[in-house]
Amino acid sequence: MVLEVKRLSRIFDNQNGVKNVSFYANEGETIGLIGKSGSGKSTILRTIAGLDKDYNGDIVIAGDKINGPHPEVGVVFQEARLFPWLTVLENVTFTLKGDPKGNNELAKKLLKQVGLSGAENLYVKELSGGMAQRVSIARAVAAKPGLLLMDEPFSALDAFTKMQLQDLMLDIWQEEKVTTVIVTHDIDEALYLCDRIILLSGKPGEVEREFVIDEPRPRDRASEELASMKKKILQTLQIEAVRV
């Protein structure tokens, strides 16, 4: 088990946050966290990343109970969060330790994989939103994380770029088999990418239901299985809406 979240609670003054959330991620699995805004999806991710320490419950990564950022964790944020004073290549190698030459080789390889070969020496100001997010993905993958956290990574992008990057993630997973927790409010995205979807509801958010998607990837975005699954998810969300 790469990640285990045990009875995580973190409630803010305005009742946003999460209550008693438990889930786990096995090696190589892709877990999707979905839920309405305010259900604490991003809160969960930030605590796993070790950025927020004010919580109850335990988070165990690769056997260690965390207390701050864990070395095995890589994060792709909603915004690309690149360093504007560095070139694309330097951004990818920025967090890497050890031999700079080897790091550069690795970064070039990854940039090629995310479709940005030739852009190594550009500055951030010269990148479009989609390109910047590709660099940010390359940066996260470059550190060879045992656990990759993605916080609504494609929500700021247009629909076409979004689909491209989702396919890019499928490629990366196929090659690196990295365990991933992805927060999204896009049900289609979760259905397309994830092995399991954890649905949060309420305020503060609790785990409402878990959906397992058995279909092999790459999946057909328009398949009937995904459509029926989407219906179930929508229904679950609907129930909550009636209850409130």
């Binding site: 479709g115 030739g118 989609g130 390109m131 396919d167 890019l168 490629d171 790459p218």
Partner: peptide, 15 residues
């Protein structure tokens, strides 16, 4: 399919 899309988008870098 996925690969093709990625390659297509490469040209963005040179605009």
């Amino acid at each position: 399919m996925a690969k093709k899309m990625v390659e297509l988008s490469q040209s963005i870098a040179y605009e």
